[in-house]
Simulated assay, not measured.
Amino acid sequence: MTNPTRSRTASPRPDFADVPDARRRNLAAVKAKDTKPELLIRRGLFAMGYRFRLHDRQLPGRPDIVFPGRRSAVEVRGCFWHRHGCANSVVPKTRTEWWTQKLDGNVERDRTNAISLEAAGWRLLVVWECEVRQNLGDVLGHIRDFLAAPRPHDKVRSS
């Protein structure tokens, strides 16, 4: 039975019967939320005094960190899964065609979600896993600047 809330245009999953059990366990352990880079950012933001919501189901793509009062969201993306283009985003050498299609679908979904968020009046900042690993302090500073920027619905007051 298909799930009516999730329509997919992709072809059915290929047969992965020949995939080794160790590889299956490895990929099954990959988390979609509460990843190490995401937790580092959340801890840093909380220490800086920011309060936020997590994975708001009412927003397109369920962004990782949501600031409702600021109508802003931060998405922490894994370089491999979202094809950042850095050294961590190499396509595997086995089942290359399948992986390319899978990862391209992720990128397209990210783009669609970002457009939908913006159309709903939200701002989105994308933070990459490699940036968090290289310099968490710079990333937190960038998020602080992003959150401090005037929002589109703010009125400029003249004195």
Rank of each mutant, 00 (worst) to 15 (best):
R83C: 00
G85E: 10
R62T: 13
L140I: 14
A114W: 05
F46M: 00
L103F: 14
V132A: 02
Y50D: 01
V90H: 06
H142S: 12
C79M: 07
D104A: 15
T94Q: 11
H82N: 09
D56C: 10
R111N: 09
W122A: 03
E97R: 10
G105S: 13
V107G: 07
F67P: 00
G137Y: 08
G61Q: 09
N88T: 11
E97G: 08
R133V: 11
A114T: 13
V91I: 15
R51N: 00
E75H: 03
D64F: 03
V90E: 07
G49M: 01
W122R: 06
V127T: 09
A87S: 12
V91N: 07
L125Y: 05
R51A: 04
R51E: 01
D64N: 10
H84E: 09
G78F: 01
R109H: 09
G141E: 09
Y50S: 07
A87Q: 13
V66L: 04
T112D: 13
K102Y: 12
V66K: 09
L124F: 10
R77A: 02
P63T: 06
P63G: 07
L117K: 02
L59N: 05
E129A: 10
W122I: 00
W122P: 04
V139S: 05
G105T: 12
R53A: 03
R83P: 03
R83K: 13
Q101E: 13
N113Q: 12
N135F: 01
R83F: 04
F52C: 05
D145M: 08
L45S: 04
I65Q: 08
K102M: 08
A119Q: 15
A114N: 07
S89M: 01
Q134E: 13
L103R: 13
G49T: 06
V107F: 03
L54V: 13
R42F: 05
V132L: 04
R83Q: 15
G141H: 00
D138A: 15
W122C: 05
E131P: 04
F80I: 03
D64Q: 09
N106A: 00
K93I: 06
D56M: 07
H55Q: 12
V107E: 06
H82A: 08
E129G: 07
P92M: 05
V107P: 01
G61Y: 10
Q101T: 15
T94R: 11
H82I: 04
R70C: 06
W122N: 09
W122V: 14
R42M: 02
N88A: 14
F146T: 01
V66I: 08
E97D: 14
T96V: 05
C86R: 04
R71F: 01
E118A: 15
G141P: 09
L124W: 04
D104I: 06
G44M: 02
R57K: 12
L124P: 03
D64C: 00
S89F: 02
R144Y: 09
L125C: 12
A120M: 14
D138N: 15
V132D: 03
V139W: 10
L45K: 07
R133G: 05
V76R: 04
R62D: 00
N135I: 00
D138M: 15
C86K: 11
R53V: 02
L103H: 12
Y50Q: 03
N135D: 15
T112I: 14
R42K: 11
G44I: 13
V76H: 03
L103N: 11
E97Q: 13
S116N: 12
C79Y: 02
L124V: 13
H55N: 15
W98Q: 01
V90D: 00
R57P: 02
L59Q: 02
W98N: 09
V139T: 04
V90W: 08
